[in-house]
Amino acid sequence: MDETGKELVLALYDYQEKSPREVTMKKGDILTLLNSTNKDWWKVEVKITVNGKTYERQGAVPAAYVKKL
């Protein structure tokens, strides 16, 4: 869990989004888990830093590609 009490997951593999509802992640990324009720796809929040600014993006990733921490 992070400092706000939200559950975290670890990306076990790289994943490139294939639709606007998904998010890209790299192996080793730590993501915030938002919903894991679907056994195949979990909704997560990814933090992306671009030019020193951090953005948050929500989307789905394959459940088999992440592990709860």
Results as ranks from 00 to 15, higher is better:
1 M>A: 13
1 M>P: 13
1 M>I: 12
1 M>V: 13
1 M>Y: 12
1 M>R: 13
1 M>N: 13
1 M>K: 13
2 D>P: 13
2 D>N: 14
2 D>E: 13
2 D>G: 14
2 D>Y: 12
3 E>M: 14
3 E>V: 13
3 E>A: 13
3 E>F: 13
4 T>D: 12
4 T>I: 12
4 T>R: 13
4 T>W: 12
4 T>F: 12
4 T>A: 12
4 T>Q: 12
5 G>A: 13
5 G>K: 14
5 G>E: 13
5 G>S: 12
5 G>D: 11
5 G>T: 13
5 G>R: 14
6 K>T: 11
6 K>V: 13
6 K>C: 14
6 K>Q: 11
7 E>A: 11
7 E>S: 11
7 E>N: 10
7 E>F: 11
7 E>K: 08
7 E>G: 11
8 L>S: 07
8 L>M: 11
8 L>N: 05
8 L>D: 02
8 L>I: 07
8 L>G: 01
8 L>C: 15
9 V>Q: 01
9 V>G: 11
9 V>A: 09
9 V>H: 01
9 V>R: 01
9 V>W: 05
9 V>T: 01
9 V>S: 01
10 L>A: 04
10 L>I: 15
10 L>D: 01
10 L>W: 06
11 A>T: 02
11 A>L: 03
11 A>W: 04
11 A>C: 12
12 L>D: 00
12 L>W: 03
12 L>M: 09
12 L>E: 02
12 L>P: 00
12 L>K: 03
13 Y>N: 08
13 Y>T: 07
13 Y>I: 08
13 Y>E: 09
14 D>S: 08
14 D>T: 05
14 D>A: 06
14 D>H: 05
14 D>R: 03
14 D>E: 04
14 D>P: 04
14 D>G: 05
14 D>Y: 04
15 Y>M: 01
15 Y>L: 02
15 Y>A: 02
16 Q>C: 13
16 Q>S: 10
17 E>W: 06
17 E>K: 13
17 E>G: 15
17 E>N: 06
18 K>A: 10
18 K>S: 09
18 K>W: 04
18 K>F: 05
18 K>P: 03
18 K>Y: 04
18 K>Q: 13
19 S>E: 06
19 S>R: 06
19 S>C: 10
20 P>R: 08
20 P>W: 09
20 P>Y: 08
20 P>V: 09
20 P>T: 09
20 P>E: 12
21 R>Y: 14
21 R>F: 14
21 R>M: 13
21 R>S: 13
22 E>T: 07
22 E>A: 05
22 E>H: 07
23 V>M: 08
23 V>K: 01
23 V>Y: 03
24 T>R: 06
24 T>Q: 02
24 T>W: 04
25 M>W: 02
26 K>H: 09
26 K>S: 07
26 K>F: 09
26 K>M: 08
27 K>V: 06
27 K>T: 05
27 K>M: 07
27 K>Q: 09
28 G>R: 03
28 G>P: 02
28 G>W: 04
28 G>D: 03
28 G>H: 04
29 D>C: 08
29 D>I: 04
29 D>T: 06
29 D>K: 02
29 D>H: 04
29 D>E: 09
30 I>S: 01
30 I>C: 08
30 I>W: 04
30 I>Q: 03
30 I>R: 04
31 L>V: 05
31 L>A: 06
31 L>H: 02
32 T>K: 12
32 T>R: 14
32 T>S: 07
32 T>V: 15
32 T>D: 03
32 T>N: 06
33 L>K: 00
33 L>A: 01
33 L>D: 00
33 L>P: 00
34 L>I: 14
34 L>F: 04
34 L>D: 01
34 L>T: 04
34 L>W: 04
35 N>T: 06
35 N>C: 13
35 N>R: 07
36 S>G: 10
36 S>A: 11
36 S>D: 15
37 T>L: 09
37 T>E: 14
37 T>Y: 09
37 T>S: 14
38 N>A: 08
38 N>V: 04
39 K>P: 14
39 K>H: 10
39 K>A: 13
39 K>N: 11
39 K>L: 10
40 D>R: 12
40 D>P: 01
40 D>V: 13
40 D>M: 12
40 D>C: 14
40 D>K: 12
40 D>A: 10
40 D>T: 13
40 D>W: 15
41 W>P: 00
41 W>N: 01
41 W>D: 00
41 W>E: 02
41 W>I: 02
42 W>T: 01
42 W>L: 05
42 W>Y: 07
42 W>V: 07
42 W>F: 05
42 W>P: 00
42 W>S: 00
43 K>S: 11
43 K>L: 15
43 K>D: 14
43 K>I: 15
43 K>V: 15
43 K>W: 15
44 V>C: 02
44 V>L: 02
44 V>N: 00
44 V>R: 00
44 V>Y: 02
44 V>H: 00
44 V>M: 01
45 E>S: 15
45 E>Y: 07
45 E>F: 06
45 E>K: 11
45 E>P: 00
45 E>V: 12
46 V>C: 10
46 V>N: 03
47 K>W: 08
47 K>P: 05
47 K>V: 12
48 I>R: 07
48 I>M: 09
48 I>W: 13
48 I>D: 04
49 T>D: 08
49 T>H: 10
49 T>R: 08
49 T>M: 11
49 T>I: 12
50 V>W: 08
50 V>H: 09
50 V>Y: 09
50 V>S: 09
51 N>P: 03
51 N>Q: 09
51 N>I: 02
51 N>C: 11
51 N>K: 08
51 N>D: 13
51 N>E: 10
51 N>Y: 07
52 G>P: 01
52 G>T: 03
52 G>S: 05
52 G>A: 05
52 G>H: 05
52 G>Y: 04
53 K>L: 13
53 K>E: 11
53 K>P: 01
53 K>S: 10
53 K>F: 12
54 T>G: 05
54 T>Q: 10
54 T>S: 10
54 T>R: 06
54 T>F: 08
54 T>W: 07
54 T>V: 12
55 Y>P: 00
55 Y>G: 04
55 Y>C: 10
55 Y>R: 07
55 Y>M: 10
56 E>R: 15
56 E>Q: 14
57 R>K: 13
57 R>M: 07
58 Q>L: 06
58 Q>N: 07
58 Q>D: 04
58 Q>S: 11
59 G>K: 00
59 G>H: 01
59 G>C: 06
59 G>F: 09
59 G>N: 00
59 G>S: 02
59 G>D: 00
60 A>P: 02
60 A>N: 15
60 A>S: 14
60 A>V: 15
60 A>R: 15
60 A>L: 15
60 A>H: 15
60 A>D: 15
61 V>Q: 00
61 V>I: 08
61 V>G: 01
62 P>N: 04
62 P>C: 07
62 P>W: 06
62 P>I: 05
62 P>S: 03
62 P>T: 04
63 A>V: 05
64 A>K: 14
64 A>D: 10
64 A>H: 12
65 Y>E: 02
65 Y>I: 06
65 Y>F: 12
66 V>N: 00
66 V>S: 00
66 V>P: 04
66 V>W: 04
66 V>A: 00
66 V>C: 14
67 K>I: 14
67 K>D: 04
67 K>N: 03
67 K>H: 09
67 K>A: 10
67 K>M: 14
68 K>L: 14
69 L>M: 09
69 L>F: 09
69 L>C: 14
69 L>E: 01
69 L>D: 01
